[in-house]
Lab assay of single mutants.
Amino acid sequence: MASQGTKRSYEQMETDGERQNATEIRASVGKMIDGIGRFYIQMCTELKLSDYEGRLIQNSLTIERMVLSAFDERRNKYLEEHPSAGKDPKKTGGPIYKRVDRKWMRELVLYDKEEIRRIWRQANNGDDATAGLTHMMIWHSNLNDTTYQRTRALVRTGMDPRMCSLMQGSTLPRRSGAAGAAVKGVGTMVMELIRMIKRGINDRNFWRGENGRKTRSAYERMCNILKGKFQTAAQRAMMDQVRESRNPGNAEIEDLIFLARSALILRGSVAHKSCLPACVYGPAVASGYDFEKEGYSLVGIDPFKLLQNSQVYSLIRPNENPAHKSQLVWMACNSAAFEDLRVLSFIRGTKVSPRGKLSTRGVQIASNENMDAMESSTLELRSRYWAIRTRSGGNTNQQRASAGQISVQPAFSVQRNLPFDKPTIMAAFTGNTEGRTSDMRAEIIRMMEGAKPEEMSFQGRGVFELSDERAANPIVPSFDMSNEGSYFFGDNAEEYDN
């Protein structure tokens, strides 16, 4: 993207840094990872977990959730003011799984939030270390993106479920800051804005008074975040219109849905970061690795190297396929839920299948599930090659597409044709070009129609051997075009429920 120079890199967003050079960025990201790792080690000690239990991804998720809940100030305040039966607002906890007599047992633990905050700050040299908290939120978000298709949420806001490739980060909490905003897809931002506008339509006082002023500035800020994701002048001009509207209503909703559809071809720039579970960072720190000293990046080879040398386990339900569970977590670790499966298959070195073909449910185990038949197995999170994460949407291309997802959002900077089903997408653009945004709409449609099938995206960008740390010898991959490109292809993934 041309304006790259004016933006802070995501590592800076990730670490609240002012302008830093590459070495400083690597050190501050490393410091953040160190903090998460030290916190995780301490929690495993508190909970008396064995090494194996500490490497269980379900335990990692519970521990991450506990610290996120302990620092969720708004919710904590709300819980104190609106006490609900049987919930102690000062405590947080969740299921911890232990191996007892050759069987997995679930144990519900409860801790004072104050105590968890103390352990977290102690692991982070006394700081609140917001960057580390956001990092864990993005890992949870990436896992949700890989596990669930947001059909219901899309339909509720009037969008087409086939636009799911635009929904990265749709389950990120509001408090995820600049680093969170960077990884949100165009569809996620559109959905947040539509929800806001709908509230304004239904509630006369939404934009009024002292609160209304705050609401208005939040609305304009979200519009600017979305505008910054678009790469064409016409899309940005249309966002200006939406932002400046005196009284946002149905016309703005129409414009936003139009823009979301246009992003299936004229893709937005959305950041991709490899955020790993805390149970990967903990053992690495415990083994003596100093992330701050060595430096770390979320968008280069580092996460690949770390996963190459990590042992992570997962509980497996009786009829689940461990290899499929591994694929789910591998995609989440690489922030690749909406990437082209052919690119992923090449990088991973084994075939990556669409969601609907995987015999696996989510990673988390519900409290009512029976533990008797639970097994555990090693997650295979290694890769054959590594590639640089991208934040450009890439230019655009036609490809055989599917009944489910009709476009992709690249996660890796790797040369390819970008699949999208042009006739299906263009069919949504018939007729409606009147109104105050008509010239911009016409211009956007013209650009979409001009998108050429034979153009290559990320020209000359390749993948790298894991021994090639400096990215000196790019390998331009070859793809098996007979395979499906979309992950949520004609899909039956479970729906995400809060």
Rank of each mutant, 00 (worst) to 15 (best):
K7I: 01
T23R: 12
V29W: 06
G37F: 11
G37A: 10
R38P: 12
F39D: 02
F39W: 15
Y40S: 02
I41P: 13
K48V: 10
Y52T: 15
I57F: 03
T62E: 13
E64M: 11
M66R: 06
E73V: 15
R74N: 06
H82R: 10
K87S: 09
T92C: 05
R102M: 10
K103L: 11
R118G: 09
I119E: 06
W120S: 05
W120D: 09
A123E: 07
N124P: 10
N125C: 15
N125R: 09
D128G: 05
D128H: 15
G132H: 09
H135G: 08
H135S: 07
M136A: 12
T146G: 07
R150G: 07
D160A: 01
S170L: 07
L172C: 12
V183N: 02
G185W: 02
G185V: 04
T188Y: 06
V190E: 01
R195V: 06
I197Y: 03
R199N: 05
R199M: 14
R199A: 08
D203M: 04
D203Y: 07
W207Y: 13
N211R: 00
A218P: 04
E220W: 12
M222Q: 03
I225T: 08
K227L: 09
R236G: 07
R246A: 03
G249N: 05
E254V: 07
L256Q: 14
F258G: 11
I265G: 04
H272V: 03
V280R: 07
Y281M: 07
P283T: 12
D290L: 05
F291Y: 14
F291V: 05
V299G: 05
L307A: 13
S310D: 02
S314L: 02
A323R: 13
H324I: 06
S326N: 15
L328H: 10
M331L: 15
R348C: 06
S359F: 02
R361K: 11
E369P: 12
N370W: 10
R389L: 03
R389M: 02
S392A: 14
N397C: 13
Q399P: 12
F412I: 14
F412P: 02
V414T: 15
R416E: 12
P419Q: 08
M426W: 00
A428K: 06
G431E: 05
G431R: 06
T437Q: 06
F458V: 01
F458W: 14
Q459M: 09
R461N: 02
V463H: 05
F479K: 03
N483P: 02
F488E: 02
E495W: 06
